[in-house]
Nucleic acid binder design. Structure first.
Lengths: 180, 180
DNA sequence: ACCTGAACACCGTTCAAGT
DNA sequence: ACCTGAACACCGTTCAAGT
């Protein structure tokens, strides 16, 4: 059996690592994301990962990116704006361990910090588009930013889904005036 | 030199451990809070800590409790309600590493999770008292809960202090009607 | 009751050596 | 270019043995 695999494309090998890492991260958080575990599952030595990722935090970023992309890839195309926001919130709520790992590591890794910032910007941009038909242009930026902050808060508090949804509805009633 | 110190009160020894642990946690987050480090700084063996704390997460809770109590112990007695909320937010903003450590570990430890819940409740209670004179009774609970969620979101996003304050002001304008 | 010292089973990271 | 295997310097946790 060959020790290395020069025949397999580099992207494919990276993809294997990220896939295994993403599952560990999603299911067990930062604690469960271990280079030893990932390597073992792929039949590699621990050190092999470092040929593709400079550190555990870099692998964390790659895994989180994949998880979020997958979770937000198929939004409901129709429906009220409130339902779409709720959908995104619930998708993210299932990934609490991922979010909190990013939050914690962003204090130690520049790569994690900048990924987190980029992700927040992405959420704000998406939300602006969803809210545009329902919010006066002058208020759009403020309202979108506020809703993202609020959702982030809801997610960071580990609330029950029903409570989460009620709080979100309350805030949307306050910020998005009924068009009449 | 004596190996153990039966003369020193148990509370005092616990206090030493928590004090050292709190400083490590505040300055370097969960990563820097190591039982080895704490023990070494106190001239103890690693295992000695386990006589007082059942696990690292239990020590985390004790350290976080002390840090938050200290940070919120002397609020400005006077001033606008908005200023008091802003003060509390800024106090907590300086403790981002503590908050994110609690958030991450709450998925793995029941003790951490219930401490986090209790802390959120404490914030909501305090906020209700601050807002009571300015918010109709029927809206008080919803508004207080929303503001806590919002502040939690602001803190979890690692924003610049100025941005943070602006967002908070915007939300308070939306939720707390001018009494006229 | 309290503490040590060693042991256990892990980590992330580095690197000489191999293919 | 890619991967191994060993080494390094750590972890948290347990526990027999001491005081």
């Amino acid at each position: 059996m060959p020790r290395n695999r020069p025949d397999v494309a580099r992207e494919e090998k990276i993809d294997d690592i990220v896939r295994v890492a993403a599952r560990a991260l999603r299911e067990g958080g930062y604690e469960a994301l271990s280079l030893s575990g990932v390597a073992q599952e792929l039949g590699l030595a621990r050190g092999a990962i470092y040929w593709y990722f400079a550190s555990k935090d870099d692998l964390l970023v790659a895994a989180a990116k994949r998880i979020f992309d997958e979770a937000l890839s198929s939004p409901p195309s129709l429906g009220q704006y409130a339902k779409r926001i709720e959908w995104a919130m619930e998708q993210l709520a299932m990934l609490g361990q991922v979010t909190s790992a990013l939050r914690d590591r962003s204090h130690h890794s520049e790569a994690v910090a900048s990924f987190e910032t980029a992700f927040h910007r992405r959420l704000c941009d998406g939300l602006r588009n969803v809210l545009r038909p329902n919010v006066p242009a002058a208020r759009l930026d403020d309202v979108a930013d506020s809703v993202v902050v609020f959702v982030q808060g809801l997610l960071s508090m580990g609330l029950a889904p029903a409570v989460r949804r009620d709080r979100l509805k309350f805030l949307l009633r306050q910020l998005v005036p009924r068009v009449s």
